[in-house]
């Protein structure tokens, strides 16, 4: 309102610049874009859907963080290779501090791992023998459970509303649309993979615990004997034997791990090796999750249900 000569004159609110949000993964960036709409300009801190262990902290990232309005990260040490070092240098109290291996959030830093309830695979003891990529706070790959991404979306809506209260209606409306889409998809995916409930899978890295938890799958083991360590011939032989006994049909391998490290495992077990990133890329979160479910279903020869996912009976609630 502008006061002129004692008379209040209504003025058009100046259109604010979009909030500049930095996200550490394309999946988080996609959700923030869906909810934020034109009110946000989301940029990636990292090169995209890549192995987070290989991302190098760079000075250009410092600039991105310094100039951003807010930061969105996975948390639970997912970004331990680069984010704690950057946060320690950037020195913004509202983005939080880089602690030893994890980043702690601030008023302008949304940490997704804070909204998933109890993390899976929290180590009961820590030691050098546990492997290289050990996460003391638990498995950080929560994004592979779409229900947990729903939880994150609620937190993202509230986070954006706090940053820009005047656009909270927009954020709520965008969130409702996105959440409805995801809910329908979850029902569809659950129905599709329901026949595989209780079946065993093998993964290369320990990235898929939340996916297995979401769809009632059992992880028989990992190709890595310990997180971050290359498989030995002995370990592969033992794993192959277990896979044959359990008739494992699906092995999930991120594209940044070499297929050659599987050795003779695929030939010995007749397993379908599905090469897919454990995070969404440019295709967006829903499309990526759809690709993941479809690839898993193909491994078991499961036909896609034809009925509308919204009316599909018997869909199970994903574990939140």
């Amino acid at each position: 309102m502008m006061i002129a000569g004692g008379v209040a004159l209504p003025v058009e609110p100046a259109s604010a610049d979009p909030l500049e949000i930095i996200a550490t993964t394309p999946g988080l960036a996609d959700v923030i874009r869906q909810i934020g709409g034109d009110e946000v300009d989301v940029k990636l801190l990292t090169p995209g859907a890549v192995d987070p262990h290989k991302v190098m902290p760079k000075a250009s990232m410092l600039l991105k963080l310094k100039r951003a309005d807010a930061l969105v990260s996975m948390g639970l040490g997912f970004e331990h290779a680069y984010l704690p070092a950057l946060l320690e240098k950037v020195g913004r109290a509202d983005l939080g501090r880089g602690a030893t291996d994890v980043s702690t959030g601030g008023s302008h830093h949304l940490v997704g791992g804070d909204f998933i309830g109890q993390p899976l695979e929290v180590p009961t003891q820590l030691g050098r023998g546990a492997g290289v990529d050990v996460h003391p706070l638990g498995n950080p790959h929560w994004n592979t459970n779409p229900a947990l991404m729903q939880n994150f979306a609620v937190a993202a809506r509230d986070f954006l509303s706090k940053l820009r209260p005047e656009a909270s209606e927009t954020f709520s409306a965008n969130w409702r649309d996105w959440d409805a889409d995801l809910t329908a998809q979850i029902t569809h995916w659950q129905t599709w993979l329901a026949p595989a409930h209780g079946r065993s899978i093998v993964t290369y890295h320990r990235s898929w615990a939340y996916f297995a938890d979401a769809f009632g799958l059992v992880i028989l083991g990992e190709v890595e004997p310990k997180p971050g360590m290359s498989p030995t011939t002995r370990h592969l032989a033992q794993l192959a034997k277990s896979m044959q006994q359990q008739q494992v049909k699906l092995l999930l391998l991120e594209p940044w791990y070499s297929e050659s490290k599987l050795g003779n495992l695929p030939r010995m077990t007749d397993v379908a090796v599905v090469k897919i990133a454990s995070m969404s890329g440019k295709q967006g979160y829903l499309a990526w999750m759809g690709e993941l479910v479809a690839a898993a279903a193909r491994a078991w020869g499961l036909e896609e249900p034809q009925s509308s996912p919204l009316t599909q009976p018997g869909a199970q609630e994903l574990g939140k």
């Binding site: 090169p47 995209g48 890549v50 290989k54 991302v55 190098m56 760079k58 000075a59 250009s60």
Partner: peptide
């Protein structure tokens, strides 16, 4: 000193 990006994951 100055550090600038070099490729996707380099400087």
């Amino acid at each position: 000193s100055s550090q600038n990006d070099f490729g996707d994951n380099g400087w």
